[in-house]
Design a protein around this nucleic acid. Structure first.
Length: 310
RNA sequence: GGACGGGUGGGUGAGUGGUUAAAGCCAACAGACUGUAAAUCUGUCCCUCCUUGCGAGGUACGAAGGUUCGAAUCCUUCCCCGUCCA
């Protein structure tokens, strides 16, 4: 007896590829609800710089996991996966089609494939590690040689996590990895990847960044800084936001901020592409999400997946 | 017209006779990624060829000559740029 699988649509792709637009159209066609999978759109008050779809433009389609935490909160891939899985169940429970939309590959992987059973962050331990004189890579080599072989000596962030896992669990992280993770179950997912021509994408990103600043990004940041949140809010280190902070601090002109944001955004889009290209089972569509051909191709994919699942 | 300073690979900028096809940084391109992921990190980066090697050859430091076994580095002339004096 084969278990009945719930349908699930995932739209991935680089920033600015038109994921939100496509998601909206598909949600209307298939009675869907949208689940955000973007690590910055989860933050409240960060609207302009994240290109968050304004409520008025959502055409009445419910959007989940957007605006769920304050700018100074830490939200990890694990947090995301848990929240998203709950949301998915809820949507499916009401007979609607969940459509996961996002550019954060790591979050998507955590949702779909799960993470290993590791400990959560231990900030005190991390602070202690940062003070150690011994090179982190050497420490990890002693605790977990296999992990040390995989993580580059310069990759401090990943070295710290690996050491943290070893110290907290008193086991090498590699052996925990071997025990596997819990993938999302009960769903049959169609993965759609948006891959518009690079030059057109970059052009669109450049325009969008300039529009963000013209549209009040600096004011948005100023307002956030005036709120009772920690001034070193992690969310404000995101692309566009850190530049806006720089403008307010008098460290750069608006022109420089725009240019810098455009460049960072392009590089980010490139990294997203690298991540998603590696993801298995993605149906790539070589255009923007708001193009008619893309929409038709995507609709067809979803339709055929439906008939298979039912 | 005169006096200095300077012209280096896509950008910036080291390099002042020989392991220099030329540091570093940036950009670009490619890649990695198991709880900070819009983060963090890695590789490639003049051209051609192959037996893909700390391989072979060809070009290259404004231009043209020259000195030298050997020059981005020294000399000469020319061109261009900057600052100052007329």
């Amino acid at each position: 007896m084969v278990e009945q699988l719930e349908p699930l649509v995932v739209i991935a792709g680089p920033t600015g590829s038109g994921k939100s637009h496509l998601a909206l159209s598909l949600a209307e066609d298939f009675v869907g609800e949208i689940v955000n999978c973007d690590s910055v759109q989860v933050y409240r008050h960060l609207d302009i710089g994240t290109a968050k779809l304004p409520t008025a433009a959502r055409r009445g389609i419910p959007h989940h996991l957007m605006d769920i935490i304050d700018p100074d909160a830490i939200f990890t891939a694990g947090d995301y996966a848990r929240a998203a899985r709950n949301t998915l169940r809820e949507i499916s429970g009401r007979g609607r089609l969940p459509i996961v939309v996002g550019g954060t590959g790591f979050y998507l992987r955590a949702l779909l494939h799960g993470l290993f059973e590791g400990p959560i962050r231990d900030n005190a331990l991390r602070a202690k590690l940062a003070d150690r004189k011994t090179p982190l890579h050497r420490i990890l080599k002693r605790l977990d040689p296999a992990a040390a072989a995989r993580i580059h000596a310069n990759d401090t962030q990943k070295l710290i996590r690996a050491i943290e896992v070893c110290l907290v669990t008193r086991r090498p992280m590699t052996s925990l990895h071997r025990e596997g993770s819990t993938p999302l179950s009960g769903y049959s997912a169609v993965l759609i990847g948006l891959d518009p021509p690079r030059d057109l994408l970059y052009r669109r990103l450049n325009e969008r960044c300039a529009e963000m600043f013209a549209g009040g990004l600096v004011n948005e940041v100023e307002a956030i800084l005036a709120m009772p949140f920690s001034q070193d809010a992690k969310a404000l280190e995101s692309i566009g936001y850190r530049q806006a902070v720089g403008v307010l601090a008098g460290q750069m002109s608006v022109e420089e901020a725009i240019e810098n944001t455009q460049q960072s955004t392009r590089q980010y889009a490139k990294r997203q592409l690298t991540w998603f290209r590696r993801e298995a089972g993605v149906h790539w569509i070589p255009g923007f999400g708001d193009a008619a051909e893309t929409y038709h191709a995507a609709k067809e994919l979803v339709q055929s997946a439906f008939s298979r699942a039912r």
